[in-house]
């Protein structure tokens, strides 16, 4: 009889499933760590996360506090190792707080975009009747090149950082929906899904518990790559004056402001640009690495 020491068959099954999942994660991580560029990217992302979370600890000054007596100091100045801008604000502190903004905007817009894209993709892949309508809508969103859709949404909602998040998330929806739909279409024909159906499981249960977990790999890769696009686009929109407004310490807005002082203080333009490039590069290479690591066809060397 089952006493406290013996496991029921259900628990054994659950444990097995758990360990299989763990194995998968360990395997993916191992493969990812073999990729030197991806490791470099991971390190940069970790640094950004640490800076973002503990921004007040790393920033040496208040990022928006003006100090006109110390304006436009160069790199390596006393007490301001990255110099100061035209209002005497410490560039390093602004970069640190900018890391927080770019990470938050990235996570916010990618998260919202995934939510919308996954929902639309699951529904359109699974329910044939809704597929046509949803995909025509997705096609319509695809008709706007690159950043134009985000701009249209900002034109409608007004210029602010929150609206940038909304705009970029809507712009992420069509691609995500297509990726998820593709996975759903290939999964739903498999026997175990048909079996679940014949056992009387509800559509919602099948979608969330059985179909969705099988689309995780492409979703993870998409989300990582999308972080890069989101951070780059936020900076671009803020550069154009459509996103973060002064005096917010946002990297794109810093470049826009620094451009006026390019002759006297080029570091105001150079430094935030390097920050953006490093972070975007990091998410791109980790995304690339994840795609290879999660690809079952790459199993040959194992």
């Amino acid at each position: 009889m089952a006493d406290s020491n013996t496991l029921t068959s259900e628990q054994v099954y659950a444990n097995k499933k758990e360990s299989k999942k763990e194995k998968m994660i360990v395997k993916t991580a191992k493969r990812l760590l073999k990729n030197k560029l991806a490791v470099f990217g991971l390190i940069i992302i970790i640094i950004q996360v640490i800076l973002a979370v503990f921004a007040p600890l790393f920033a040496t000054y208040d990022p928006i506090k003006q100090d006109l007596t110390n304006a436009e100091l160069g790199i390596g100045s006393d007490g301001h190792w990255l110099g100061t801008d035209n209002y005497g604000r410490d560039v390093w502190s602004r970069i640190v707080f900018g890391a927080r903004i770019s990470l938050l905007v990235g996570i916010g817009s990618v998260g919202l975009g995934l939510l919308g894209g996954i929902a639309l993709g699951l529904v359109s892949g699974y329910f044939k009747k809704l597929d046509g309508i949803i995909m025509r809508f997705v096609d319509l969103l695809f008709a706007f090149p690159g950043i134009l859709l985000a701009m249209l949404i900002i034109a409608m909602l007004g210029t602010s950082l929150v609206n940038v998040v909304i705009a970029i998330s809507i712009w992420s929806i069509p691609t995500c929906a297509r990726i998820v739909r593709g996975s759903v279409l290939s999964i739903k024909k498999q026997e175990y899904i048909l079996a679940m159906k014949s056992l009387g499981a509800s559509n919602f249960r099948i979608l969330v518990k059985h179909v969705l977990p099988n689309c995780t790999a492409p979703i993870i890769v998409f989300a990582t790559m999308r972080m890069a696009t989101a951070i780059l686009s936020t900076a671009a929109l803020s550069f154009l004056g459509l996103g973060a407004q002064p005096p917010t310490a946002e990297w794109g807005a810093m470049i826009a402001a620094g451009q006026d002082f390019m002759f006297t203080s080029p570091h105001l333009t150079i430094v935030p640009g390097i920050a953006i490039m490093l972070v975007v590069f990091a998410f791109n290479v980790v995304g690339d690495g994840l795609r290879d690591a999660l690809d079952p066809n790459m199993d040959l060397d194992q």
Binding site: L232, A236, M262, T269, M277, V280, N284
Partner: peptide, 21 residues
């Protein structure tokens, strides 16, 4: 990969800095 990651508005500013200024 770097080319995809570089913000083009910043690249433009850098090119101006080097070749024009």
């Amino acid at each position: 990969l770097a080319g995809i990651s570089i913000p083009n508005f910043w690249l433009g500013a850098m090119l101006i800095l080097i070749f024009s200024v």
